[in-house]
Design a protein around this nucleic acid. Structure first.
Length: 323
DNA sequence: TGCCCATGGTAAT
DNA sequence: TTACCCTGGGCAG
């Protein structure tokens, strides 16, 4: 459910608060007990995101691979730094939060001296920061697959699709299967790889954008929005999409991913007035061009936004602007 | 309050 | 192809 931007934010959060200190690794839920025992007591030396997957390297050469899937999330609590100011609260980075507020904004508003000593951050698609009076460390809530605990910070992982211990060879193999990620790979090389693969395939461009071996990190929201922004018919086979449009899709993904990592939100409409920009941040209904807007009028031409299931996922598009 | 759906991907069948 | 992961928001009642 989190698309690429949130996984990069989570990796950075772990980098800030969990690297280079011994980490107690446990599995309160029990399902990851054996894996946790392999990592327990070691230091995290590297935290890296590639597409929608996160890889944590421990000091004895083993790695933890996590994929959040459709409803996985990380909860952070304790003395959490969210990249702008050091506070102590609970931060949850994970599920949707309708207010549209994000970790950085919330933090900025409460980071004065004397702020509550516990912060809670939930990281998934969007983020929520709240002051929290709980005793540290807080009791695990729900089915916590993995808990990372240092003397001052805790991270709880719930509901992941994938969570496993890997060797470096296995990590390399996993990353080799993934298409280019603008925040990992050289941008020019990434553009060439993406363009070459797309222009060889008969598969509809809408499916290629969701294929993590073609390009990393794009999910259902970004897919629909990127295609609208390019005014591209989603059903056109990759090989029939003009090279200019294919390169444009990559460059637009680079742009949207950077905005997403910066803001914690999937902001896909630019050129808005400051007032409309604020509205788009606040409510999902105003945020997107076509995603989740079946039957509503296109924001440009007024035509009904269409929806069709493709490859098991819902695809949204404007039949006129993308026709 | 209870039901449905969701920003995926894995693994069993 | 289907079940699973088993959460949280939206919405009907």
């Amino acid at each position: 459910m989190p698309e690429g931007h949130s996984v990069h934010r989570i990796a950075r959060q772990i980098e800030r608060n969990f690297e280079h200190v011994p980490v107690a690794v446990s599995s309160p839920q029990g399902r990851f007990a054996a894996g946790a025992a392999q990592l327990d007591g070691h230091e995290i030396v590297q935290s890296k995101a590639v597409g929608k997957q996160m890889f944590l390297e421990f000091d004895h050469g083993l790695w933890l691979r996590v994929h959040l899937g459709i409803y996985g999330s990380w909860d952070f609590a304790g003395d959490i730094t969210t990249g702008r100011a050091a506070t102590a609260s609970t931060t949850r980075m994970g599920q949707t939060n309708q207010s549209g507020s994000n970790a950085v904004d919330a933090e900025a508003s409460q980071s004065s001296i004397g702020a509550p000593r516990l912060t809670r951050v939930r990281m998934s698609e969007q983020e929520q920061v709240e002051p929290d009076a709980e005793i540290f460390p807080p009791e695990p809530v729900g089915a916590v697959r993995v808990r990372l605990l240092t003397p001052t910070a805790v991270a709880d992982l719930r509901g992941p699709t994938a969570c496993e211990v890997l060797t470096i060879e296995q990590v390399d193999a996993a990353i080799r299967k993934l298409g280019p990620d603008p925040l990992v790979d050289d941008l020019a090389e990434g553009e060439e790889r993406f363009t070459a693969v797309v222009r060889k395939k008969r598969t509809p461009i809408a499916l290629l954008l969701m294929d993590q071996s073609v390009v990393s990190g794009i999910g259902n929201v970004y897919r629909a929005e990127l295609l609208f922004r390019a005014r591209q018919d989603p059903f056109t086979p990759g090989k029939d999409v003009s090279e200019e449009v294919v390169r444009g899709l990559w460059r637009d993904w680079v742009k949207l991913l950077n905005i997403g990592v910066e803001t914690g939100l999937m902001l896909t409409r630019d050129g808005l007035t400051p007032r409309d920009q604020a509205k788009a941040r606040r409510s999902r209904a105003d945020r997107y061009w076509v995603y989740h807007r079946t039957g509503e009028p296109c924001r440009l031409c007024g035509a009904d936004i269409q929806m069709q299931e493709l490859g098991g996922r819902k695809l949204y598009w404007c039949p006129v602007d993308q026709g």
